[in-house]
């Protein structure tokens, strides 16, 4: 079993390496010159050249890449063009809202979507199934920011139940933290409830056609136990896989949600960095989010071993 985990871990390394190369190339082969951006509109060629050499931009591309990678392993993500401070420090300052939002959204999503999807599969063709299917199509068709503004308009502006925007750090009190996060995480989870409920339905439906479900019924097992003990236990792996894969979509949603609710997290940082053409920050954030995505899927792979005894090597 540990060999399996080790193998998954080792398989993640080349993926991350390719991501690093892609991110590096993407932002280094741009038509715009970072040095010119830093220097500002009124700089002369001499000043730009100085900045270029200070940033190492006059080195061969391979050298630049190796320096960049080497620095990152030492926790040095470079200095933000825009904020004029270390990107690493910037990320540390901005990480709490993002993690809070994502975790709350995932918890909300899983606790709603899995029971809903299971029920829909079991009652295939019934009104509840149609409701889940209808809701899921609408759920992933309405963009996150439209949902966000609708909720703000109804629950914050009209009813005044929640604050419109902003974030409160957890260290300033749990209640305030939660109160300000409810709307954003609800906004974010709607898409994922739609996606995961639907995938749960599909997985459970597929499992319900398996022979061992028929076996359980032939033993005289009750329908509830057939559903939980046999169907859901076997559908766990595909459901987990989907949760892992939708994590990528979740990150996209986080960027938008933070922007709508002006939560000072990494998503908002990304958007601001793009607007300011702050390349070191863009690189670092994309890399970090990709690493998070790969790690989450690694965790999912490891979690498989808890649910499926066949995965042992």
């Amino acid at each position: 079993m540990s060999a399996y985990i080790l193998r998954r871990l080792l398989a993640a390394i080349p993926v991350m390496a390719i991501v690093a190369v892609l991110v590096f190339l993407m932002l280094r082969l741009t038509p715009s010159d970072p040095a010119a951006i830093i220097a500002g509109d009124f700089a002369n060629d001499q000043q730009i050249a100085e900045i270029r050499s200070k940033l190492g931009l006059d080195q061969p591309i391979l050298t630049q890449f190796l320096i960049w990678i080497g620095n990152m392993f030492q926790g040095d993500f470079g200095e933000s063009f825009f904020y004029k401070k270390q990107v690493a420090q910037l990320i540390v300052e901005r990480v709490e809202p993002t993690i809070s939002l994502s975790l709350l959204a995932i918890v909300l999503t899983v606790s709603i979507a899995v029971p809903l999807g299971t029920l829909a599969a079991y009652k295939q063709g019934s009104w509840i199934d149609r409701f889940v299917m209808g809701f899921s199509v609408i759920g992933f068709s309405v963009p996150v920011f439209v949902v966000g503004y609708l909720l703000i308009y109804l629950l914050a502006v009209k009813l005044d139940w929640f604050p419109v925007q902003g974030y409160q750090y957890l260290s300033d009190g749990f209640a305030g933290w939660l109160h300000r996060l409810i709307l954003p995480s609800l906004t974010l989870s709607i898409v994922f409830v739609a996606l995961i409920a639907r995938m749960t339905r599909t997985s459970v439906l597929e499992v319900l056609h398996e022979d061992y479900i028929r076996t359980a019924r032939a033993k005289g097992q009750s329908e509830l136990k057939v559903l939980v003990r046999h169907a859901l236990a076997n559908a766990a792996v595909p459901i987990l896989t989907v949760i892992g894969l939708t994590f990528a979509t979740l990150i996209g949603g986080v960027v938008v949600t933070e922007s709508v609710y002006t939560l000072p997290g990494l998503g908002l940082l990304t958007v601001d960095a793009v607007l300011a053409r702050d390349y070191p920050t863009i690189q670092a954030v994309i890399l970090l989010f990709s690493l998070a995505y790969v790690l989450v899927n690694l965790l999912v792979d490891v979690a498989y071993t808890l649910f499926d005894p066949r995965i042992r090597y």
Binding site: E210, R214, T215, R217, A218, K219, G220, A233, N234, D308
Partner: peptide
């Protein structure tokens, strides 16, 4: 079912819950 009458199936590979 299971008590007075019971059943076995064609595919032993899939008739048992794998987990």
């Amino acid at each position: 079912r299971g008590q007075r009458m019971s059943m076995i199936f064609q595919e032993p590979m899939t008739a048992l819950n794998p987990v």
